[in-house]
Design a protein around this nucleic acid. Structure first.
Lengths: 223, 223
DNA sequence: ACCTGAACACCGTTCAAGT
DNA sequence: ACCTGAACACCGTTCAAGT
């Protein structure tokens, strides 16, 4: 039906930092960080590996840029009606879902130095902390605690994703983990055993939010 | 003065998994994860790279084993007199200090899958959570929140260590960061600007503990 | 200014051959 | 059973040469 090319041929677009980063994101989603290679990236861009270096300093900068691109999309605008707690939950869930969809982002956030996108997240969290009337002296700690918790979960999610097939059934894995924990030494792992059954109905997203709420409760506690 | 060799020649000890891991820890401390190479490791062990594979499956297993070795040393025994909060603080600080001394451990914990040593940490945290009389249904969430926060900070510390020279002055870096934040756009980064000055007297360890206390306060809050 | 692609200096890992 | 070390199949990155 289409008269000309139905979708633009990628090889015909000019090379640009933007296009390199966007193809890198695609590739990272498909094959992960270890699979993202300057050679396969160059092949997809229909060029040589050297060409990429004209636009991007190296692989770590490329990973940072790809992460920024994904995270920037999750930092939405403010909703006037929402409570500060709601905004924080929405922001945290946005990051959680982005990392769920792009596990390599979790790994990158968990052990990359301060990135520009993270500063934006920190800013938005901080504003809500202020809106919660947290005393000035405690605001930094409150915002940091939330961010560090989010980054910790991000790293763990990325690790889980990397450890298993991308299409692995999370429920099955949790079942297997529950079974494992139930076999642990009752003396040395009494607690793990006592919560093992809970893994069978565990929901990562719900649990993540429950942790956010726990920290929010702590923030609301007068010193 | 010494009649024989003053310290045992490493090249004369037999190769063993234990020795490989312990030399790997040394090397990781000196040159970081990127610097740990099977070739230099083999050289230090006075053998060939292939020999290592007889005792260790590969590099990721080696990194896991090295991390386990360091973390296992931080999981101390229980102190009968201490409150549950104190035990959690001590445990968290122990991990913090271990990661401060061995930044590569932070990176490994932040994005490695469940490791045996982490299960021990989880167990010890969980026991204290139980001692705090947290309802059974909330114990898993409480212990997870604490662990995820610890892992998040671990990753960030590792990232900071990797981003700068090992001997970089943390106070100077914080000063520079404060100066940077103070130059940010007042509209878009009002919060970051408002806490920038605080960075000049920031203490990573103190801040880390304050975050732990925040979560402990949240845990103590009745639902 | 921007692209090409061969070449360099590495990696982790394997494996035939030794002891 | 354990060690050796050359060799394999890659990497990220550089750079002379092109357009």
């Amino acid at each position: 039906m289409a008269t000309t090319t139905r979708r633009p041929e990628r090889r015909q677009e000019p090379l640009s930092r933007e296009r390199i980063v966007s193809v890198a994101v695609e590739l990272l989603d498909e094959v992960g960080e270890r699979g993202l290679t300057f050679r396969v990236l160059a092949e997809r861009l229909a060029t040589g590996p050297g060409a990429i270096y004209w636009h991007v300093a190296g692989k770590s900068e490329l990973l940072c840029a790809a992460t920024e691109a994904v995270v920037a999309g999750t930092v939405g605008g403010d909703d006037a009606d929402a409570t500060p707690q709601d905004v924080i939950r929405a922001l945290a869930l946005g990051l959680f879902d982005a990392i769920d969809a792009h596990p390599w982002v979790g790994a990158q956030l968990a052990d990359a130095p301060q990135q520009a996108a993270m500063l934006q997240v920190f800013e938005r969290i901080g504003r809500q902390v202020q809106a919660l009337r947290v005393p000035a002296a405690a605001q930094f700690t409150a915002a940091s605690a939330l961010l560090n918790y989010i980054l910790g979960v991000a790293g763990q999610n990325a690790a889980h994703a990397r450890a298993h097939r991308p299409d692995a059934d999370r429920a099955e894995l949790l079942d297997a983990m529950a079974a494992e924990w139930e076999e642990l030494d009752p003396d040395r792992y009494a607690f793990a055993r006592s919560v093992a059954a809970r893994l069978r109905t565990h929901d990562d997203r719900v649990e993540f939010l429950a942790g956010i709420d726990l920290i929010l409760a702590g923030i609301a506690t007068p010193r």
